[in-house]
Simulated scan of single mutants.
Amino acid sequence: MGSTAEAGWCAARVNLDKFFTDIEFIKDELKELDDVYFSLQYSHEQSKTLHNASAVKDLRSRMDADVTLALKKAKVLKLYLEVLDRSNAANRSLPNCRLGSSSDRTRISVFNGLRKKLNDSMDSFNALRQKISSEYRETVQRKYYTVFDENPDEKTLDLLISTEALLFVAIPKDESTSLYFRPTPNTIPPPFDLYPWSKRMRFLKWHY
């Protein structure tokens, strides 16, 4: 009887050790997710002060990469937690690990803490994405008003944001005048990337 109880305790101990090994791995992944969040937050603030076209373009590429990485990590972490949850349920079939046992309460407490941490991290990340999107929309609207002395309607504003096109500037050979292309929902502009940054920003002197 004593040997059976001891064997059950040893099995519970081994499983709990394995559990905490998995927990440390998930914590490391959550830390990396936080690092991506702070990187995106820093890049967003930095984007407000940059005025070099190449630097801004590189920064936006990094921001896009951070968003993609964060979403990928969050998806993987969700899968890890689902596996861990199933492992907790299976663990209750072992001696000394049944529902309500010390081992089970420890697992549930740690698991709930990790799940809350992931949810909080994603809430913060989504709030930051919304802030970036909202501020970018306001910036585009302000730039449009500076050029045309009127606010764009919602369809035009959506077009400008989706194509990253605020203004197309054709520079004549004598460069005495500049011709501006006014994007509208009924006018599909050529790919904005075809226009050199010098031409895109010649008039505004503002950068994305």
Rank of each mutant, 00 (worst) to 15 (best):
P185K: 07
K57P: 05
V76C: 08
L128F: 05
P196W: 15
M63S: 09
S109V: 05
F20V: 08
P172S: 10
Y180G: 10
F19Y: 13
A89S: 02
A11V: 02
G113A: 01
D28N: 11
V36Q: 05
S87D: 10
K72Q: 15
D64S: 10
L30N: 05
T139R: 14
G8I: 02
T4L: 03
K72L: 13
T184P: 04
P191C: 12
N186C: 01
A12N: 03
D120W: 00
D28S: 08
L179W: 05
A89H: 01
S121G: 00
L114H: 00
N88S: 01
L159P: 04
L204N: 13
K73T: 08
M63W: 02
A165S: 13
F192G: 12
L118A: 05
E164T: 10
A5N: 13
D123L: 12
E45S: 06
N119L: 00
Y136M: 07
I171G: 08
I171L: 12
D85K: 12
L69N: 07
L79T: 13
L84V: 04
S3F: 01
A55H: 13
K173C: 05
R86A: 08
I132P: 14
T68L: 14
G8H: 02
D158H: 05
K116I: 00
D174S: 09
E135L: 13
L40V: 08
A74V: 05
I23L: 15
N151T: 04
W9A: 06
R105D: 04
Q46C: 09
A55Q: 15
P196G: 11
R107T: 06
F125G: 03
R129Y: 02
V169R: 01
F20L: 15
D85Q: 13
S162V: 09
L94S: 12
F168P: 00
L118D: 02
R86E: 13
K18E: 09
K173G: 02
H44N: 08
T184S: 12
K117Q: 03
K131D: 13
I132A: 14
K31C: 06
L71P: 00
I132F: 15
E164C: 07
D153R: 03
W197Y: 01
N91S: 09
L84T: 07
L30C: 06
F19C: 04
Q141M: 07
V36I: 07
S134G: 06
L16K: 06
E29Q: 11
L118T: 03
S39C: 14
A5V: 07
L160W: 00
M122V: 09
T21H: 15
V36A: 11
M1S: 14
E29F: 02
L94E: 12
R137Q: 15
R137G: 12
T21P: 03
T21L: 14
R98S: 11
L118P: 01
I108A: 09
